[in-house]
Design a protein around this nucleic acid. Sequence first.
DNA 1: CCTTAGCACTCTCGCGTGGAGAGTGCCAAC
DNA 2: GTTGGCACTCTCCACGCGAGAGTGCTAAGG
Lengths: 359, 359
Amino acid sequence: MDTRDADRLSPRDREILRDIIVTYVLSAEPVSSRSVAKQGRLGLSAATIRNVMADLEEWGYLVQPHTSAGRVPTPAAYHMFIESMMQARKLPARERRYIEENLASTPADADELIAIASHLLSELSQQVSIVVAPAIGDTVLKAVDFVSVAERKVLCVVVSQAGFVDNRMIETEEEIPRQELTRISNYLTQNFAGHTLRDIRDRLLRQMTEERLQVDNLLARTIELAREGLALDSRPEVLVDGASALLARPELADIQRVRRMFEAFTDKARLVRMLNGCIQGGGVRVLIGDDSDLTSELDFSLVASAYRVGDQPLGTLGIFGPSRMDYQKIIPLVHYLGHALSRALSDKVAGARRIDQLP
Amino acid sequence: MDTRDADRLSPRDREILRDIIVTYVLSAEPVSSRSVAKQGRLGLSAATIRNVMADLEEWGYLVQPHTSAGRVPTPAAYHMFIESMMQARKLPARERRYIEENLASTPADADELIAIASHLLSELSQQVSIVVAPAIGDTVLKAVDFVSVAERKVLCVVVSQAGFVDNRMIETEEEIPRQELTRISNYLTQNFAGHTLRDIRDRLLRQMTEERLQVDNLLARTIELAREGLALDSRPEVLVDGASALLARPELADIQRVRRMFEAFTDKARLVRMLNGCIQGGGVRVLIGDDSDLTSELDFSLVASAYRVGDQPLGTLGIFGPSRMDYQKIIPLVHYLGHALSRALSDKVAGARRIDQLP
DNA sequence: CCTTAGCACTCTCGCGTGGAGAGTGCCAAC
DNA sequence: GTTGGCACTCTCCACGCGAGAGTGCTAAGG
């Protein structure tokens, strides 16, 4: 099988390949020459189509499950379809409005926004959605707050500029009075807002070694609390939604595949790795079949896009499902939702900026 | 089929029924008279066993999938097994230790403890675990804190006495300075700690109507923030874990059942209703098959227990899986984990009490 | 009266067979 | 280059058959 460039295919070849893909995406069954001919778009006989299909198979765009079955598109075919055979339709106005309404609904915090986005994605696509929340270490601090919860137990609340909230319970060596906690909260918020947690931790570590011996009590406590409270581990969090809708699809008739699919969803670390591979560069990235171990193993595809605040990418969102997927619909959806989520998060930052400039 | 009391069965009948249940739980296949006879525990021939099995079927403890298949226990059989044929084994020391280690690990907040409990439950049982977090309205307030996040956006952090943390973003009508937020936080915490959110909301409403016109500015703001921040809706939250392990079981060979199962897990409201039915009364509750719509539809069982702090039940935790379940192992597990989680949460309260008594 | 061996009966399951149908590949004609 | 025709291949399904498993019943024995 010698694959060749897209432009080696004659326009007629491309038309036929396109028809096959579209038909297959709808029917989930191998496409026969006859069914393409019957559509009549090209005015060709089944025999002619058969010749072309034989070529397309030779070039690696089609395969047959067995002799005397119809043909099925390969990942290469989907790639070509996406790159040059698909008009990128806009998302229907109804769905845009639906998304906007849901994202704008409440003064939600960022975590809620992400959950909503995940749900929208799976609901509108009837596929499994995956959203990766930002790694806490890369987020920009907006505010820290310490709340006394029990003797020697303090709850640390970290709010990122994009509106993500993280709670962490920490145990202190000695009881710290409430007033002092307030002072420490204010001190840290005023001095470190606008920096990433990673930066802050590094600065605190330096400060600690420099002033190790002559630190006063308050500063020591501040540093202790900040180190514990601003630790970097817990995230990234992964939200998976819509798995049950996927079970209705015909390609998941056998349990073993379903099971592998669920194991894939459970292995969050692997999902994060795969999705983060898509984060660089704007726009929508598509992984199909053998592009990655996870997708090839299941014959699945991933359509993903980063969401960002300003120019900083925060996380990724995408759809994971059988390669036979309505890319004409899914790609605009992921694209739009990536932007919509970015916008919704940026609105928060705009609010945050405004308050930063107050006296 | 005339069901009869447990004690109407002769000891031998009970022995045979017991053997059948135990065998079926292991093998997942209808149990034949011959296989019971071959175990030789009773020294009876297959023919005798057959006679007894015919009786047991007539009384509603067994069914055959078809003539000339072995027999399968009914929900009634499982009930009897649990009530009077099973020695309640203690949970193995290894597993106890494992649970304790995991629950004691960090100064985790209560939400984390619940997530850990859910995971332990599914890991140790290889079944699906379900944990219902407390409805926020019933939790006892430990502390409230307001954090300024953006202009007119305030994050409200609510900590319950058991250590549950809830965040809620609220939008205020006008900008509130940070100092004032601190004062409001302190005021609310000092005046309302120890009451349920439901109480607090009622008291605030009364206060509002009483003083509607002559309230000063600060009090008005306090009430506004408290009403928004202490609203009762968001929870209860439901954690479901371990679904993929369940897919390995032979009874889930057909997709439709798997799908219904997942739809059941997605319908959280229904899960909550079912689990909360188990909350009253101490100890472990078991629903089997036709006890409830959800379990009968799938031929599933639910083994559930409440967890509590002091004498107040907070939520429920349990295992949901095919009725063919190793109750001898699952029941002690749920029992133990219910107590372990209660204890872990109570330790927090103890800490909270101690700090309350400080000057 | 309970137990047991024996036996006929029933139902499932696996297997092979055979025909229908779908689809292809190739060839010859246009 | 296109098309109709035709032989070939492969899947799928229905059918039948036999083996096996398990039962229910009966009759004999303790």
